[in-house]
Design a protein around this nucleic acid. Structure first.
Lengths: 242, 242
DNA sequence: ACCTGAACACCGTTCAAGT
DNA sequence: ACCTGAACACCGTTCAAGT
């Protein structure tokens, strides 16, 4: 046990199940009016996909919808709720593992589909990690994942631990990947260019790593499936040995 | 290979080695003046630790230092550089693995120390994941980690892959942990309270998980060392088998 | 060399007023 | 029921002016 933390994570933060995003959208039967929660959320996602989340303001979003900023508040409670709704939509795009299928295949498929969705919506990964999102889509994903593992022989506790370890990797890898959008070729060139800036006495191993990349000894590249494979292998051994 | 992504991550994004935070602080020999880069950064960290990063504005920071917002720009180039400097300070608090020691012990110690540092500075984890920080402290940490693994028999490529898988877990777990700051006791109570909201027909497995937690079948808790252990075990097997 | 006040171009959100 | 304009209390940053 370490100072400052509890050293545990819960399955789902149930104390947040009352979140706005858990409720259905505000106005269901919108017919004559131009705007709707759905339209606002869709346009917000489109803008965030194009220009990033930092430039997404209520004013800019409203302008893109041909309306003033304040009219958005008839359809979303706040910018915070808007972002929750946007994230729920992204999560709705995850492939749910099939309950009763080969758990390893299903879980691997889910992991890859999450990564793909987060690469499509580059703004979403950081937000999904750093806030608690409780929408129908998240509940569906958790239910399917736990269900798949439990059906394959995991206990509920084991399924929780497995899902946690897997998600740490999926989100942790993807957010790093989103920050390194350069080409492998460019990377080698960059290593050559910046080698003189990596002090050989201060950072000998980094220096040598850069030299090896320049000399084509290796490519300095890491892949998603590696860590995923480590974890899946470990889980397989773990469930079978108990 | 999936659409939208490259499916790889580089060791270090060398194209960013020219970042301001990689250079030494702006004014080194500050004597008579009241402010200095170091003082600005320290106070900013103190404020962020206390009130979170969202409320840290240049104006509030300046006020806390008894100065106007604009005078801060004599010591940091921008708010962005300020945050880079703050993050570098946090990373400087990580325990570096000893080169030549038992790699598993050293790497595990590093992982726990990172988690601890990020729990002390709750604002730092999300930022460290979602931006590229290249300061002396990061270079030192990477150098020591790669050095520890290489000295223990990993190839440079293997060391990269290992560090990547480990860091995905360390950061991925910690950021989740930061979002679940409730007590285990409270969690059980919350499960009982919110059970009716988890539709048994829509989310049967989540429903059953909640029931099991309420019935003390398990505690719904996941620990840092579990995923870390899975990865370390996998790495151990991986290096020995080649 | 450092600090300042005023200003610029923005924010999210409230509120009273319109239709 | 929805949309609006004006306003409030903020932002980060620039720039000319002070010492």
């Amino acid at each position: 046990m370490f100072d400052g933390g509890h050293d545990y994570i819960y399955t789902v933060n149930m104390s947040r199940l009352h979140q706005p995003s858990f409720k259905p959208p505000m106005n269901q039967s919108q017919k004559t009016r131009s705007l709707s929660t759905q339209k606002v959320v869709s346009k917000a996602i489109k803008l965030a996909d194009k220009d990033g989340i930092d430039t997404l303001s209520m004013r800019r979003l409203a302008a893109a919808l041909g309306v003033t900023a304040m009219s958005l508040y008839n359809h979303v409670e706040s910018k915070d709720e808007l972002i929750d709704l946007m994230l729920n939509e992204v999560v709705a795009g995850f492939d749910s593992p099939k309950i009763g299928g080969d758990w390893e295949v299903e879980i691997r498929r889910r992991a890859h589909s999450i990564r793909r969705a987060l690469l499509r919506h580059r703004w979403a990964c950081g937000l999904l990690m750093s806030r608690i999102v409780i929408g129908g889509a998240i509940l569906r994903d958790i239910n399917a994942t736990v269900g798949c593992l439990v059906s394959a022989g995991f206990s509920y506790a084991q399924a929780d631990w497995a899902r946690n370890a897997l998600d740490c990797h999926v989100y942790g890898y993807t957010i790093q990947e989103l920050n390194y959008p350069v080409d492998p070729g460019e990377y080698k060139a960059a290593a050559a260019q910046y080698l003189p800036m990596i002090s050989k006495t201060d950072y000998p191993f980094m220096h040598e790593a850069a030299v090896q990349i320049i000399d084509n000894k290796y490519d300095g590249v890491t892949q998603f499936h590696f860590g995923l494979g480590l974890i899946l292998d470990g889980l397989k051994r773990w469930v079978s040995e108990i």
